[in-house]
């Protein structure tokens, strides 16, 4: 009989679904092994020792037994629950967004410890910071950078001239800016204001502790969100469920005024 191999890793629960009678199938993003899938047996029973340690968006230390295609969770111990996420529907939506994006940009068994650190940091932002839109933009830019899709914001992707301080165009197909002279290179390029370009560059290069002091006006926030979402959807070629959910919450916010804060 082959020896059962077990290994240890710290991981964040990206997705989970019901499996069998009382098990849960988890998609984990681990620091050491990247994205892996594992079964947490009995995790739907309240008496299970694992139940409270393998919930969505929790970071736990796992002991896993290697299986043929699925690993089996033998132990799980909570490291960080990001509890404030769970008490706020808007925060939890942003956490879902962070995990969904990362899930889409990665494949199984592909180690990305930089992305792991980013995700755990971002869950902390979404649990605690007040400007969730800004945190989401920073997260997107960092993730794009790590995935190899850093938007080019310093020179025009057509004429290669440095970008001047004026309104520009953003081409999702080319992955960066087109200057006003070259905008015809991509008929679908989105207009982008000079101040939005400046903010994007700032977010791209400065650490969060510096960036978080920015206080951006609502229209600018939406402009940044719009251009980055267009770019992400172009790269991923599919809609994101959490983004759709966020839009639905916003529509509702108009119906039931004052019900949601920090929604943007």
């Amino acid at each position: 009989m082959p020896r059962e191999r077990t290994f240890r890793t710290e991981a964040i629960v990206l997705r989970r679904s019901d499996f069998g009678e009382s098990d849960r199938l988890l998609t984990l993003f681990s620091k050491e092994f990247g994205k892996i899938r594992a079964v947490a047996k009995g995790a739907r029973k309240p008496q299970s020792r694992k139940t409270g340690h393998v919930e969505l968006f929790m970071c736990s230390r796992f002991l896993l037994a290697e299986g043929r295609d699925l690993h089996i969770v033998t132990q799980a111990e909570l490291v960080e629950a990001y509890a404030p996420l769970r008490a706020d529907l808007v925060r939890v939506t942003y956490a879902a967004y962070a995990c969904e994006l990362l899930d889409r940009f990665t494949t199984e068994n592909d180690r990305h410890s930089d992305m792991y650190d980013l995700l755990s940091q971002a869950l902390g932002w979404f649990a605690g910071e007040s400007d969730l839109l800004l945190a989401a933009r920073v997260y997107e830019l960092r993730l794009l950078n790590m995935a190899g899709y850093r938007p080019q914001l310093h020179e025009c992707l057509h004429c290669r001239e440095p970008i001047q301080e004026q309104d520009q165009f953003f081409s999702v197909a080319l992955g960066g800016l087109l200057c006003p002279n070259c905008q015809a290179a991509d008929a679908r390029a989105l207009p982008l204001t000079a101040v939005a370009v400046k903010v994007l560059r700032y977010l791209q290069t400065r650490p969060w502790e510096v960036v978080k002091k920015l206080q951006l006006k609502r229209p600018l926030q939406h402009e940044l969100e719009n251009v980055l979402h267009h770019y992400l959807l172009y790269l991923l070629e599919r809609d994101l469920k959490s983004v759709d959910f966020l839009h639905r919450l916003r529509r509702e916010a108009n119906l039931f005024a004052g019900v949601w804060q920090n929604l943007g």
């Binding site: 997705r15 969505l56 529907l89 939890v92 939506t93 956490a95 879902a96 967004y97 995990c99 969904e100 469920k241 959490s242 759709d244 959910f245 966020l246 639905r248 919450l249 509702e252």
Partner: peptide, 11 residues
Amino acid sequence: AISPVEGIGPE
């Protein structure tokens, strides 16, 4: 149940 992950909303 409402699920931002699965995109299930109140409606």
